[in-house]
Design a protein around this nucleic acid. Structure first.
Length: 884
RNA sequence: AGGCAGUUAGCUCAGCUGGAAGAGCAUUUCUCUUACAAAGAAAAGGUCGCAGGUUCAAAUCCUGCACUGCCUACCA
């Protein structure tokens, strides 16, 4: 074994092993299942920190459950990624050949996309393998492969025939760069500094005008009314009158609607029903005309020829200019408001009227709310429950059609006549082209041009991965569904999580998962979101290269408190890398010492105090670690592992074990080795979910011909040797060691100098005295003490340095390495410090209410403390006097 | 505008069923002691955001405020 842990070779070896030996493949059986489906990354994806975190956490859970003996299954897959993917290929096409998708046409463009997909391959899946993910690689699913397509069609047809899917002309979010409608969840809002323009709308009487404040002066041509609040006394007389739109002089009415906020702007609003959601509602309530002035290319239409065909931004400039020239502009204020942008290309979203497919989600939402309200689905952390419910309760129908090419084409067929024109017959939803029209028996059909929102297929993911679309009597689906836990970031709670619940209940009559574990988002060290444009991205692949995959995973696990965002920079991985090295070397110590031992007893026998102590600490820690894993507090599990292994196991137990390891008595050596091995192996198991590579390697060295760690079953921790009192006793010894070490350091006693030590107890406590005598070899070993003797008569003591650790007083003779004056100062300082404490505690105890109301144990504890401190001061004073 | 988080050592964060402030990194000092210098031993560093309240006792519970971040919204 190398002296320094070198991860590369070991990681490659185990990656390959797990895949080739199908370590993580699962079949339905009689054993209890534990199922997780991966949030499928986009095919365009390249592993970033978010993926690394999300998948590490899933892997931790899967590996832990596997150790517990569950039949675990983690299903891998990728998403076709709709708009995002089409954009990537479109950009490539433009760059390489200077062509647009329209130059190629739908068929050829889609062919290009498929080619690109094969070329690019499943890069991200390979990266997940590299990360060590225990996915079942025989089950890789793609949201657009045959089985998943079947599922999408089946779902669509069911919903269509139920009357839940309908076509309607409505105001929708439109990205003119992507050329498609978007759902509300696909819009990202950003604050933008803009202006508020105050415009004059003249009454028919040309001397009077009202002032209207607007952020969108270019849409005046689409105005079909002005509106005021009915309770706004300033404008009562105005309601019902006509005003003229600036520039074009078109007459519109002033109406009243209670939604208008009196305090904003002038309290008068221009109503543009075709391009604003609120205005649209007002128009519906007041039966106003709806006039479209922006088309799907983001250009002006139905406006004076001067502005016709201009894109919105330019039109705004021109209109403002003209308004100003013609004296319609009263003033311009600065105004910051949030603007909706496309989540895939950041183009400003226009609202416009368009015919789209919608899914009525009212009933599904109710059931999805109920499932979480009743805690049938449990959220970790609970704080996400409320936003989830609120969102679902206010959900409008879902716009599911997209005007792009890459995706599941809507399986709706229209009957056409011999000229290819659509007839009035009812459209049919079906898997393939229908044989004949229900209404006119025609055999001519065309398919709907639109594709489905990517998230439609994603919403089916937990059932489609088990081939819900293909098979009717599906054993696997029955066995693995509902899945056990969904692990995800909160950014797709609405986009994805909620919709899976809706669809799961709709199609399976059963929730898709029992638990939802929502982790935070990774930020840089300044708390900023990581993004390429900010240049603050920490690449997980680099980290894996530089620090090792286990170090990456351990860092992520340690930072992953449920629901909390985490800040990460390159230095965050250092501590973890060092910890890996620690594990490696501690194991090396054990392994090297096992070399000439032919056989080790499996049964352990705690003999000494340190044995009993480490077993007690180990028992406590393992319980904590297991509980932490169980409730997705993976950060706590990682912390406990770190603390126990490094501090307790390495720094104390391994160090103390050296006394017996170097013993010439083979039995003594074997006895301590057995405990070292037992704890090491158990810890390796418990660590393996987070850091599978290093633990697999060490496990294999320790258990040459046995099962690999990933396939092992967690050792049962026996309570037989648990000794609570050993912890207290050991703590006493540790305290003495630490105090002597501190003294050595403070007084610059060279480490090579072995010192003589005497000790006494403050209250002549025989038991403690016995404990120390029994374990003085620990003190000798770790504090570099030559001899340690009990001192009966302290009265005669002269010129000793003294320290007090709990109830024990330790004396070290002054042997020229320290001046009396220096020691006096040290002791006086100690007295002053203790006195401060004494004051505080005395005050507490003199408080009558404390004595009256505090629990007895607490009072007792405080009294003992005070007593000890007083004793301490007494002794220090005495020692001070003995210094001559 | 509303909702949800967060505010603890220079930095990143634990601790929050209320009873003597913790870790890692960085800093300082010693040490290559036969697993590990990516280490060991030790030191220094904190009115636990601010102001109230409950309590014998508050980093921990309650209220208000401030700042930061996120989510939602019909910001004309």
């Amino acid at each position: 074994m190398e002296r320094v842990y070198a991860p590369k070779r070991i990681e490659e070896k185990w990656c390959k092993y797990w895949v080739e030996n199908k370590t993580f493949s699962a079949k339905s059986s009689n054993n209890k299942p534990f199922t997780v489906v991966i949030p499928p990354p986009n095919i365009t994806g390249c592993l970033h920190m978010g993926h690394a975190l999300n998948n590490t956490l899933q892997d931790v859970i899967i590996r832990f459950k596997k150790l517990q003996g569950y039949n675990t299954l983690w299903v891998p897959g990728i998403d076709h990624g709709g708009i995002a993917t089409q954009n990537v290929v479109e950009r490539l096409l433009k760059k390489k050949e200077g062509k647009t998708k329209h130059d190629l046409g739908r068929e050829r463009f889609l062919q290009r996309m498929s080619e690109w997909r094969i070329e690019t391959g499943d890069v991200i899946l390979d990266q997940l393998k590299k990360l060590g993910c225990g996915l079942d690689w025989d089950r890789v699913a793609f949201t657009m492969d045959k089985s998943r397509s079947k599922a999408v069609k089946r779902a669509f047809i069911q919903l269509f025939n139920k009357g839940l899917i309908y076509k309607g002309k409505r105001l929708v979010n439109w990205c003119y760069r992507c050329g498609t409608a978007l759902s509300d969840t696909e819009i990202e809002y950003e604050h933008e500094r803009s202006n508020l323009w105050y415009l004059k709308y003249y009454l028919v009487n040309p001397k009077e005008y009202v002032v209207v404040a607007t952020t969108r002066p270019e849409t005046i041509f689409g105005d079909t009314a002005l509106a005021v609040n009915p309770e706004d006394k300033r404008y009562t007389s105005l309601v019902g009158k006509s005003v003229k739109i600036p520039i074009i002089d078109k007459e519109i009415k002033v109406i009243s609607d209670s939604i208008i906020d009196k305090s904003f702007g002038t309290g008068v609003v221009k109503i543009t029903p075709a391009h604003d959601a609120t205005d649209n509602e007002i128009a519906k309530r007041n039966k106003l005309e709806i006039l479209e002035i922006i088309d799907t290319n983001g250009k002006m239409i139905n406006v004076p020829s001067k502005y016709q065909e201009l894109i919105v931004e330019e039109a705004r400039k021109k209109v403002v200019e003209d308004l100003s020239v013609k004296d319609f502009l009263v003033k311009v204020d600065d105004h910051t408001h949030s603007v909706g942008k496309c989540y895939r290309c950041s183009t400003k979203i226009e609202l416009l009227i368009s015919e789209q497919w919608f899914l009525n989600v009212r009933d599904m939402s109710k059931k999805a709310v109920e499932a979480v309200n009743s805690e049938k689905i449990f959220f970790y952390p609970q704080s996400w429950k409320k936003p989830y419910i609120l969102w679902l309760e206010n959900l409008k129908d879902w716009c599911i059609s997209r005007q792009i090419w890459w995706g599941h084409r809507i399986p709706v067929y229209y009957c056409v006549d011999e000229n290819g024109n659509r007839t009035k017959c009812r459209p049919i939803a079906s898997f393939d082209k229908p044989i004949e029209c229900h209404d006119c028996k025609s055999k001519n059909f065309i398919q709907d041009e639109d594709v489905l929102d990517t998230w439609f297929s994603s919403a089916l993911w937990p059932i489609s991965v088990f081939n819900w679309g293909k098979e009717e009597n599906n054993k696997e689906l029955k066995y693995f569904y509902p899945t056990s836990v969904l692990v995800t970031g909160h950014e797709i709670l609405y986009l994805w999580v909620a919709r899976m619940v809706q669809f799961g209940i709709e199609f399976m009559k059963e929730i898709p998962y029992y638990n939802v574990f929502i982790h935070g988002i990774i930020r840089d060290k300044h708390g900023k979101k990581m993004s390429k444009s900010l240049g603050n991205v920490v690449d997980p692949l680099n980290v894996m290269d530089q620090y090792g995959t286990d170090a990456l995973r351990f860092t992520l696990a340690k930072a992953a408190a449920p629901g909390r965002d985490m800040q990460i920079s390159n230095t965050s991985f250092l501590a973890s890398r060092n910890f890996m090295n620690k594990i490696w070397n501690a194991s090396r110590f054990v392994i090297v010492n096992l070399e000439h031992i032919d056989k080790l007893d499996n049964a352990i026998q705690p003999i000494e105090l340190s044995d009993k102590w480490i077993i007690a600490e180990f028992t406590n820690s393992t319980a904590k670690i297991k509980r932490a894993y169980e409730f997705y507090n993976i950060d706590n599990a990682a912390r406990e592992i770190y603390d126990f292994f490094w501090t307790k196991y390495c720094n104390w137990y391994v160090e103390l074990s050296k006394i017996r390891i170097t013993s010439t008595n083979l039995n003594i050596k074997k006895q301590v080795l057995a405990i070292l091995v037992y704890i090491l192996k158990s810890m390796l198991q418990l660590m393996s979910p987070i850091i599978p590579f290093i633990t697999s390697e060490i496990w294999q060295i320790l258990n040459k011909n046995e099962k690999i760690i990933a396939e092992s079953i967690l050792f049962a921790i026996s309570e037989n040797f648990y000794s609570e009192s050993s912890i207290k006793e050991m703590n006493t010894i540790q305290d003495i060691i630490i105090k002597i070490r501190t003294l050595r350091s403070e007084l610059n006693i060279p480490s090579t100098m072995q010192i003589k030590v005497l000790f006494n107890t403050l209250d002549n406590n025989d038991k403690i005295e016995g404990t120390i005598i029994e374990n003085k070899h620990y003190i000798k070993q770790l504090a570099r003490v030559k001899s340690m003797q009990y001192l009966k008569n302290i009265a005669k003591l002269r010129n000793f340095v003294s320290i007090i650790a709990g109830n024990i007083e330790v004396f070290i003779p002054l042997e020229g390495f320290i001046g009396i004056e220096k020691e006096k100062i040290r002791l006086e300082k100690e007295i002053a410090l203790t006195n401060q404490e004494v004051e505080k505690v005395t005050l507490k105890l003199s408080n009558k209410n404390f004595i009256k109301k505090a629990p007895k144990t607490e009072i007792e504890k405080t009294k003992i403390r005070l007593h000890e401190m007083k004793l301490k001061i007494e002794r220090i004073n005495k020692n001070l006097k003995s210094l001559i």
